[in-house]
Simulated assay, not measured.
Amino acid sequence: MLSVNVGERRSIAAKSGTSGIDKRPAEGPVQVRAPGPKGVGGSGLVGDHISDTANHGGDDQAVYAYAREDLDAWERDLGRPLANGTFGENLTTAGVDVNGAVIGERWVVGDVVLQVSCPRIPCVTFAVWVGEQKWLPRFTRARVPGAYLRVLTPGTLTAGAEVRVADVPAHGVTVATAFAAFTTEPELLPLLQGVPELPREDSEAVARRLAKH
C-alpha cells in the first residue's frame, strides 16, 4: 500500500457545496473504524471528511481503494500527473488487483481487516473534481472503478503496509463484473443475485431491475 489518504472539508462546485474528495496522503498512522450505517456514519478513516452522507460513506463504503497502476494509466490518458488520492481514494495500492477482487474477499492490512463490498459508481462530484469533459462516460468505459470496503476489524493503517488477500468467496464475482452489471452490461445482473456480500441497497436494486424484465 503506497499511501493512506484523507480529505478535509473543502468547497466544490457541486450539489453538496462541499466535499472531502480532495484526499491527500497522511503523514503518519491513521485510525480506522466501522463508521455506522449510511446516512449516519461517514468515512471509516478518522479525520476523513464526507459531506454527502446520504450517498457516500457508511459501513459498506467505509474505505475506498484505487490502484496506483490504474492512476498511472489515467495519467497517460489525460496527459497530466495524478497524485495518490486524486480520485478520492483512501488507499492507493500497488501490486493489488483491486478491480479483479472478488466481492466479499477480505484484505488483511496490519491489524485491520477489510472486506470488499462493491465497485465505485462515479458521481457528478467526481466529474466536477476531475474537470475533464465527458468524464463519467470515460471513467465508466474504462472499467477500472476501484473498490469500496467494509471495516471488519478496526485498527491502524500506515503507508507501506502489505495488503494480504484472504478468504476469497467461491462465487467469483469481481468488482469489475459488478461494475459492468450496474452500468453498461445489465445482462450480467443475474450473476449478482448469488452474492450475499453485496450491500443490501445494491442487492435490492438488482432485484428491482430484474423484476422489470
Rank of each mutant, 00 (worst) to 15 (best):
T86H: 14
G88H: 05
G95L: 01
Y66L: 10
G88S: 06
D72W: 04
R68K: 12
E75R: 10
G47C: 13
T93P: 01
A67T: 01
E69A: 14
A67K: 06
G88L: 06
G100R: 10
A73W: 14
D48A: 08
V96Q: 01
H56S: 04
V98S: 05
D48Q: 10
G57F: 02
V63A: 11
R76A: 15
W74F: 15
V46E: 15
T53K: 15
L78F: 14
N84M: 12
W74S: 01
G47P: 13
E69T: 00
N55V: 09
R76E: 15
R80W: 04
H56K: 15
T93I: 02
I50D: 00
R76N: 09
L45W: 04
V102I: 14
T53W: 10
A73F: 07
G79F: 02
S43E: 05
F87R: 11
R68N: 01
P81S: 14
Y66Q: 05
S43C: 03
E69W: 00
A67L: 11
D52P: 04
G58R: 00
D77L: 15
G44T: 01
R76M: 11
D97Y: 05
Y64Q: 13
N55T: 09
Q61Y: 08
N99R: 07
L71H: 07
D70M: 09
A83M: 11
D48Y: 08
G58H: 01
L71N: 02
V102S: 03
F87S: 09
L71V: 09
A62G: 05
D59A: 07
G42N: 00
D72M: 09
V98N: 02
A101P: 03
R76Q: 15
E89V: 08
R80E: 08
N55H: 15
D59C: 04
L71Y: 13
E69K: 03
D60H: 13
G57W: 01
H49A: 12
T92H: 03
G58I: 02
H49T: 04
G44Q: 04
V98W: 05
S43R: 01
G44D: 10
Y66T: 03
G88E: 06
G57D: 02
D60A: 14
R80T: 04
L82M: 10
L45Y: 03
A67Y: 04
H56E: 04
I50W: 05
F87T: 06
Y64L: 13
F87L: 15
I50M: 07
V96A: 02
N55L: 13
D52R: 12
A65Q: 11
D77H: 14
H56I: 05
D70H: 15
G100H: 07
A67R: 12
L71Q: 11
A73P: 02
D59M: 06
L82W: 03
G44C: 05
S43L: 02
